[in-house]
Each structure stands twice: as structure tokens, then as C-alpha cells.
Amino acid sequence: ALAAGNCVVLKPSPRTPAVNEVMRKLISEVFAPEYVSFLEGGAETARALLQQRLDYIFFTGSPALGREVMTAAAARLIPLTLELGGKSPCVVDRTADVKIAARRIAWGKFLNAGQTCVAPDYLLVHREIVPELTAEIKLSVSRMFGADPRQSPYYGRLIGNEEVERMRRLMESGEVVFGGETDAAARYVAPTLLRDVAPDSPLMQQEIFGPLLPVLEFDDLEAEVVPFISEREKPLALYYFGERRTGEALFGRVDSGGGGVNDVVLHLANPALPFGGAGGSGMGQYHGRYSFETFSRPRSVLTAPRKSDFTMKYPPYKGFRMIRKLF
């Protein structure tokens, strides 16, 4: 935004006070407030900001808040980008390399204890490989975080106690295969895999944004997976493990903000790729050059010579017949 010539008002989440303190310190050391303003506060601060005459709004958050932001922007015809997350499916076909798929899925899902916008939200696994895949995911979790992830320096915590309680309630929607342990005081929820999850259960109705991974089974990719994903809100990310050609064909049949074939999350890390949502998961794109384009607007300006004039543009339009003959 700054490189594109803008001043910036930055409003962080009120739920991350320690991060905000670091950001406030860094920004105040580098930028004068007339170039970058760092405003903390809750919903009232956000609503007050949305009443201002802004040139552009960039919002990251939930779909519910995204609708509020878009409504406020529409009242003032302010263009905006929305990055809203969503339930990103991960399809594991019977042609997948199960060990590699399990390791990559476990890493992408339990990174930051599942609190990333592009984490695989749920698995759609071919019925033939469900037992093998679940066993390999469990093994991958133990290799990454040890027998007790609570003791691992590499496993994160949830942002608040209320999120631990939300995870507990969501776990009631399925059978725990492994994990399931919680500690509200420590904001800890173990890496958890669940099966026997109904498509209409609470676990499948909201973005999990935590370390719970439901497993749903399928027999036929075209007949079951394609309509299952397509009938829901467009996800921020779509992942497929299996034969490359089949995965690329799936991306042609199912819409999403982005995604990957035989890996997860990493499309977010490539600055040469545009990142953003589609439909309910957001609108607009950013990263690298795309961020510069998001925060800039080409403006056409013509400078005409003062001494010569194109007289044929004036009535009675003499000479137009000659021009038509030439062109």
C-alpha cells in the first residue's frame, strides 16, 4: 500500500494485544503518523473507521464481519478487498502417495494449531485408503510434536479460552480417532482427527480455525466430491492428493480462491502467485505485484499540444471523408 503511494490506517484485532504492542512499537519507530496510523480498539473503532472517506478498504476476517464491512463500503462506494477464509477441502484420492500426503496434511493442518486461513478444514478421502491415511497422519503428528504435543515447543495454543470451548463443542459432531485432549487454562487443544462426521453437523457448518480435522469418505470423485464441494460456499483453498492430471481436472470443475495439487498451504507463500478468495471466501487478490495493483489505480491523463489543433474534430467535420478513404 505504501509502495503504491498511499497513506495507511492499520486496525489490528483486539484479541492479539501482545502482537499489537510489538507492531505499534515498530511502526512508531519507522513511520510518522500522517503516513501510517495504528489504531487499536474493538468493534466501535472499526465502525468509526468505516464511516471515514477512505480510498480503499482491505479486510481480513470472518464472512459475517466481511458482510458488515462490504455494506459500509457500499454506502460510500469504496472499493475493497475481502479475505474471509472458509472451509477449505482436502481431497485424498486412492492414487495418492499416502505417506507423503499424510505428512503434508498434518503439517498444514496443525501449523499454528490450525489457526491459519488456508489450513485444510476437512478431508474427503477415498474409502479404500481411509485406514492407512488416518494411521499415517497420527504417525506424522507424533513425529512432529512427540507423544504429547502439549510438551512440544513447535505446537501452538489457541488465541483464547472461548476457542477451546468451541473446539470441545465441535468435537461432539464426530468420533475422535486420536487427540481430543483439551486444557482451557493453557488454551490447549490436541491435534485431533475425527470420523463419522455428518455433512450437516456443526463441525461442517463453520470454519474450524483450530486443530480439528474431520474425515469424510467417498467412492467416486466425480459423482460425490465435485457436487459436495460445489454445493457449498466457494472455499479459500482447495487441495488434492493423487494423480496430477486428475487434480488439475478437479480444479477445472470446482471453484476456489486457490489451492494446490499434492501439497497444502504453500501457494500462499509464493509472491509470484495471486492470493485471494472467491464467493463466500472473499474477493480481490494480493501478494507481490498483485498487492501493488490492489492498492493502486491507473489514471489516464492526456496532454495536448497548445499551438497545433486537430480542426477536423469540430463541426462541420470537414476532411472526414478523406480520412475514411485513408483508413
Rank of each mutant, 00 (worst) to 15 (best):
A184E: 10
V130K: 06
F59S: 01
P316K: 06
I159T: 02
V118P: 14
G277S: 00
G146W: 12
K11Y: 08
C7V: 12
F295N: 03
S88I: 13
E231V: 09
D220Q: 13
R53G: 00
V261H: 02
F145W: 13
V264M: 03
F228T: 02
L268E: 10
D55R: 09
G156F: 13
R299H: 08
T134M: 15
L80S: 07
A304L: 15
S152P: 13
T311V: 04
M322N: 13
I323W: 11
E181C: 07
T95V: 11
C7S: 10
E222A: 03
R168F: 11
S13G: 05
S88Y: 10
G259Q: 12
C7M: 14
N20C: 09
E233M: 11
E172L: 09
P315A: 06
E217N: 02
L77T: 15
M167K: 06
G288N: 00
Y239K: 00
Y188T: 01
H287T: 03
D121Q: 09
A4W: 09
E136D: 04
Y290L: 00
A190N: 05
L26K: 12
N112G: 02
D196V: 12
R24P: 02
V118C: 13
K325T: 07
R168A: 01
F58S: 04
T311Y: 06
L236V: 07
R232N: 00
D148V: 12
V91M: 07
G160P: 14
P227Q: 02
P298S: 12
K109T: 06
A185H: 11
N262D: 01
P79S: 02
N270Y: 12
A223Y: 11
Q285T: 07
V19N: 12
D93Q: 08
V92I: 09
A185P: 15
P120G: 00
Y56K: 12
K11I: 08
K325C: 05
P211C: 14
